[in-house]
Amino acid sequence: MSAKQWDRVVTGLLWGAGLLIIGVLALFLGYILFKGLPVLSASFIFGPSSDVSAGGGVGAQLFNTFYILFLSLLVAAPVAVGAGIYLAEYSARGRLADLIRLSVECLASVPSIVLGLFGMILFINLMGFGISLGVGAMTLALMNLPIIVRVTEETLKTVPREYREASLALGATKWQTIARVVLPAALPGIVTGVTLTAGRAVGETAILIFTAGTTASRLIPDFSLAAGGETLAVHMWYVMAIGLVPDRVDIANGTGALLILVILTFNLILASSTKHLRKWLTGM
């Protein structure tokens, strides 16, 4: 085969790979929605779940999913943005910054089941809390930290140096410069990072099984931190792996579709909001 023919073959193969990647994704999403959408009814989405009989809903799990997500971001975001600010604005180079960056990378690579066991030792066995929504949220926050740190640092670094110089030249202190010039300019990027994190955390399971547990409150919504914190993803796993309900396949199908819808929404927000947000915040 001549070099030109070979080139054409490989180009064809690369097209094949690209189409395969998109095709598999479309097949996955289509299958889950096709199986699950018919299950979705108001009584399924908002109703209480059942342990033994058919017809249970996922109302409590749906609420828990967003409540745990919200709490975990509430804990993680301020700390992570603070750490990102330190790395980008105060100590770009140096041993300490390197050590912290290495720690962030390591934290990002800790398998989620290991984080779950760590949360279990720390919050349940040492501090004496029960398996609950609050403990699940705290543990999930550990997973959110590294992504937000990294996104914050990267985004702050893209803010032009002239912005800082102009602000400092006007007599602003470093903190004033960060708070009024650098952070607003970087906010769209940081919000994107937080949304990205939320999209990942919403489907997290392994972290939550032994910290938030596999039971949900009878009350919907139950804001108590001590309540059982079963989320949609955990519920989906639990009914398939251990569940006793006769309609578990339906429940798993419906829960899967609900999760996919939530994730599609997150990604849509992510894709459309950043542009508007940037316009609105920077006036450009």
Partner: peptide, 30 residues
């Protein structure tokens, strides 16, 4: 203003160091 400027730095430093503390405690407890 200057006092703020000085102490807020330690807040950020503490957040950053917390990352290392968490990783080390995961290693330690496991």
């Amino acid at each position: 203003r200057l006092v703020y400027d000085r102490y807020i730095r330690y807040l950020f430093l503490a957040s950053a160091i917390l990352m290392s503390v968490i990783v080390l405690s995961i290693l330690f407890f496991m």
